[in-house]
Design a protein around this nucleic acid. Sequence first.
DNA 1: TTGACATATTCCTATATGGGAATCTATTGT
DNA 2: ACAATAGATTCCCATATAGGAATATGTCAA
Lengths: 127, 127
Amino acid sequence: MARASTTSDAFNAVAEPRRRAILVYLAAGEQTVGAIVAALEMEQPSVSKHLRVLHKVGLVRMRRCGRQKLYETNAAAIRPLHEWTAYFERYWQHQLLRVKERAEAKAAASRSGSPGSHKITPGERNP
Amino acid sequence: MARASTTSDAFNAVAEPRRRAILVYLAAGEQTVGAIVAALEMEQPSVSKHLRVLHKVGLVRMRRCGRQKLYETNAAAIRPLHEWTAYFERYWQHQLLRVKERAEAKAAASRSGSPGSHKITPGERNP
DNA sequence: TTGACATATTCCTATATGGGAATCTATTGT
DNA sequence: ACAATAGATTCCCATATAGGAATATGTCAA
């Protein structure tokens, strides 16, 4: 199997830096394709293609206005990504704590002067 | 140019559903490759390959323990994704408000009985 | 209708992917 | 030293990408 399609979900669509830039640009309000082209300094066909991907996964909304089209970020579609990453929030807080503890332990050790290699054991959940 | 490498950043690495599953599984603590294989019901070479990608972008940490290797999610590396998505938080809150307002307007309209198509204008930031 | 403008699509190509199967490497126990 | 075990790597392949260039579609204005 090859890599999943960029249009298969928001995670894949958002993996492309230029698409992220477009989403940020369109977050504050509707913009014309031409405006995106000008603001982000991309080729027009490139922008159209990226918008197509974003639209397919529901990350942008589009509406016609005369001869131009107005795109706008659909922020709600980003929410699942936010929630997935939020799951790890408690863990990186733990990690910061551990880093802090280690730093303090190290400082204490260098004060009292006992080096000693600390034998490590596997994680608790192991067979 | 082709699609960016999966190892080019966390966004690309995380686009793969199985890699996300691995990250979740390894978030709570170190696990053996074999444990991942058993828990997520994937082929062993597949797990090794995914771990390699995750390791290259710093999403997991590894340490050898006898003949096995222990992998653990490096939650801190997920933080940039969290922050990127957090940028849109205020916008989806706005959207929820608008949806609510529309629903109320609609309810009010159906009560008083005037239908009328509402002519819409382009966004404020337009040329 | 015709022309001008705004977007979209198509064609091309180099590149990378993820799965499956087979094999290699490293480490342990005897 | 050797067998056994845990992981990693390699080879093969179908698939999809993103960019560039050229072209097509669609909509307004005169």
